[in-house]
Design a protein around this nucleic acid. Structure first.
Lengths: 336, 336
DNA sequence: CTGAAAGCGCTTACAG
DNA sequence: CTGAAAGCGCTTACAG
């Protein structure tokens, strides 16, 4: 129960060497005999030495922290998706001797272009931005010159770095799977102008239809949210499709409730698939066939990008796609 | 887009004063004329000065960061409760010029008593521990002497500091409410030996029964989980109570599914209440009457405690209870 | 009201 | 292989 403040100097004194030698030994640098290195490490351990990152930080001008920014609206009760993402980021950052500092961005700060306090305090060497933010906010943070990596979101600005899941390919694969199961009347559920992810997923769906020479029908493109992003009841088409490809699990879950109320059984009467593999995928009955976003791989990729950007801020590695993974459950019926 | 590295010295040079004066001005300390202070602040702003926390940290031996530890098992897909909690903590910390660093503790690290890397790096001045951890881990982290505040969890060790929701009072109030609505056959759903929260909630329930001279019936105490914490199907008693007081919303939600399968309607045939006001409270149909844990108030209280402990580590303010808030919805029927 | 000096605990050249 | 010196950017105590 003692709050120790052992320094390298203390270790050096104890062993009758200089603190330079201790620094080299603990940092595994050249120029200390292996024997002495070993001895120093043992003593450090024994004395309960803890490295003082602040000192290193000041010397090198780096904090060894990365800010992870998530808009508050993505961290609501129903959306632990991004918070789980943070977990992977945190682990990936530790692997490269960094720590993550999570910053929830409020609507207010986003609107008024208030940068995170950790920016002003120089507590971070860069920001990983998780999810979509307003263009003006992106510009504001980008103008500071601090290294930036965008995760799970991209824009048309090619000078920025992005790591995203391959939404296009994921929904393409999913639609192929539905078609392989004999479906041809497949609706896409998602408002095309709401988010860039929905658009890309839609395009993957469309690509699959094109490849299979199934015409795209306007009445099978169903809105799921209004312009503010608020989820709506999906209007079920008169002619019931045999499958609904939903842009996310939550919408698939809500759609299944609506279908149930209309007496439509899933998957007997029609199939429903989702995307994300979040809580709604398993809350749904039957559980949803969906595409899992490989957040772990995305997190690792983003952290790597960030570390490279910190050592070379001019670096621009562009948009990196990470492939998702099909999860097969019980919400699809084979029509064959 | 320039990565600036303006220091106090730069500002001082620009104005022909010393960096000491700049430090005093920016820190709003005594000994600089208001005029000069104002001028310095303007120039700092104009030059894009950012405070270097690392330098202050080294000087004072404080990092101005607090680690927030959450066991990974509490941050699963279905449990964003604690992650929301973190949000409040983060805001409360910013109010006192601190930043929060979220650390997800893996089962493995917990078992092997591996302390967070941010501890070894001296990146934090204290830890707020969110939720229950093993006793051995608590001992291990406590022995380091680093200031500790436990949030939403307590033990019998009086030398530690806790901030918890008033589980006892919340369930007491809830049971009173059921009784006021004419219920007398009220079951409690929760395994009494699983967690300390469940125990306290049970005792609040019991207290209410005692006050109303309703006998406690063993067959109305229903297990909801096994020893490992895994949720079980609740065994509905032969003689159906008129109300179920569940120890949490999730269990209430699951119970309602079970009841539905047995053809029991809520609230017509029996009432069900929960606790926590989490996602399950509104996912349930009808929505659950429940007790909302006042996480914001708890977060503020914990941060205050922490700040006081940092300046005086010997301080032991003990167990602080924060009152919850009844949320009335549609899952209770009046028997009158 | 203002500032020169010392020091926080490291690391990076450089000298031996 | 080992170490004395300088410096990172602040703040504190002291002198003027």
């Amino acid at each position: 129960m003692q709050q120790n403040h052992v320094t390298m100097k203390d270790i050096a004194n104890r062993l009758g060497v200089s603190s330079v030698t201790v620094s080299k030994a603990l940092g595994d640098k050249e120029g200390v005999s292996d024997e002495l290195k070993q001895k120093i490490k043992e003593i450090a351990q024994e004395m309960g030495y803890r490295f003082n990152t602040a000192a290193k930080a000041m010397k090198e001008g780096l904090s060894y922290n990365i800010g992870v920014v998530i808009a508050e609206r993505y961290a609501s009760v129903t959306q632990s998706f991004y918070l789980q993402f943070y977990q992977y980021l945190s682990t990936a950052l530790e692997d490269v001797q960094y720590s993550g500092i999570l910053h929830m961005l409020s609507e207010e700060d986003e609107g008024q272009l208030v940068l995170p306090r950790i920016y002003h305090d120089r507590k971070v060497d860069g920001f990983i931005i998780l999810g979509q933010l307003s263009n003006t906010y992106i510009s504001a943070i980008h103008e500071t010159g601090i290294p930036l990596v965008f995760l799970d979101f991209y824009t048309d600005r090619t000078e920025l770095d992005y790591v995203i899941t391959d939404n296009f390919y994921g929904m393409y694969e999913m639609t192929n799977y539905l078609i392989a199961n004999g479906h041809r009347d497949i609706a896409f559920v998602g408002s095309l102008h709401a988010t860039s992810s929905i658009q890309d997923r839609f395009l993957g769906y469309y690509k699959s239809l094109l490849e299979h020479r199934i015409p795209l029908r306007q009445e099978y493109i169903l809105n799921d949210r209004d312009e503010s992003g608020k989820l709506l009841d999906v209007a079920i088409p008169e002619a019931l499709p045999t499958a609904f490809a939903c842009n996310c699990d939550q919408v698939a879950y809500l759609l299944m409730n609506t279908l149930r109320k209309q007496g439509v059984r899933v998957p007997e009467d029609c199939s429903v698939v989702g995307f994300d593999n979040d809580i709604y995928a398993t809350l749904a009955e039957p559980a949803l066939t969906t595409v899992e976003v490989d957040r772990q791989e995305m997190a690792k990729t983003a952290v790597n990008k960030m570390v490279r950007k910190i050592s070379d801020p001019a670096l621009n590695s562009g948009r990196v796609l990470v492939r998702g993974k099909m999860i097969y459950r019980e919400s699809v019926r084979s029509m064959k």
